[in-house]
Amino acid sequence: MTTTAGLAHADTGAARAVALRVLGVLGVAAVAAVATALWLPQFYTATNLNSLLLQASILGIVTLGQALVLLVAGLDLSVAAVMSASLVVVASLSGEGLGGIAVAVLAAVLLGLGVGTLNGVLVAYRGVAPFIVTLGTAALVSGLQLVYTRGAPPGAIPERMRGLTQDGIGVVPWSAVLCVALAVALHVGLRRGTYGRRVYATGTSLGVARRAGVRTDLLLVGIYALCGGLAALAGVVLSSYVGYVDGAAGKGYDLDSVAAAVIGGVAFTGGKGGVLGAALGALALTVVLNVLVLSGIGSHVQLIARGAIIVVALAFIAHRAIKK
């Protein structure tokens, strides 16, 4: 019985460690924020907080999808390509009318769902490694986009769409409200719903879930589709934010979304972590990157710092996961 008690203790210890890590990340972000207030007073201007929340909401939405995929021990590296393609679809299909915008947004989200479904089918039914599948579909989507636009994307982002990111409640843009709403909805589904039970069971042990009657194949396809759809939605918000047509606007969001989710406590190995943590991870990462920008470091050095932060964060957290 002593070993039993010991193990149980170790488990609550592990849960506490996760909580501590999340708190630690938030703490670091808070310290950074206070330090910034002293060194970089412009951090707390309404303009900066607004753009920070805006960027965080775009990263947040795509990170929600990435977190779902990570929860079932997968990985989606096609989200950046989907975001770019989504922006191009919005630009080329929508006119200035509301109906046109609705059609364009719908088309973009359908594209994301489609790519995600393809990812899921290949992973679940063909057993291909998620890493390979999603790198492949990323190339596929980018290639199709190039063929469609011939390198020079047509159209423009309608003025009406800009409200999504330019208007809001005080410094909080509508896109951040959207992100929080999505996070809360997913959180409830995962933590309270039977859906979450199936997702966490599948992520923890596919074998156990299957034997319990969970249709793990369908569930995986659904998760990847959801991730693709969320990436497309993030692309729609990105188009509103950027305001012009850029065929590579989503670049970097693949790695950033993985980093944000992992920083937010989602384990690479599946079954551990949650979407709220992932969203907070997106916020933390954005804050850090924002401070780098404000501190006046040159853009090239920023890129190095950004890469270093992601690599260090992933290496640190992944290493701990392996040790367990």
Partner: peptide, 23 residues
Amino acid sequence: DEGALLPHTISENVALPNLREVS
């Protein structure tokens, strides 16, 4: 590997094949 979800609680494990009954 096939019977129990080790990181999960007893009630979560018991619920898995009985989700319809407990929801």
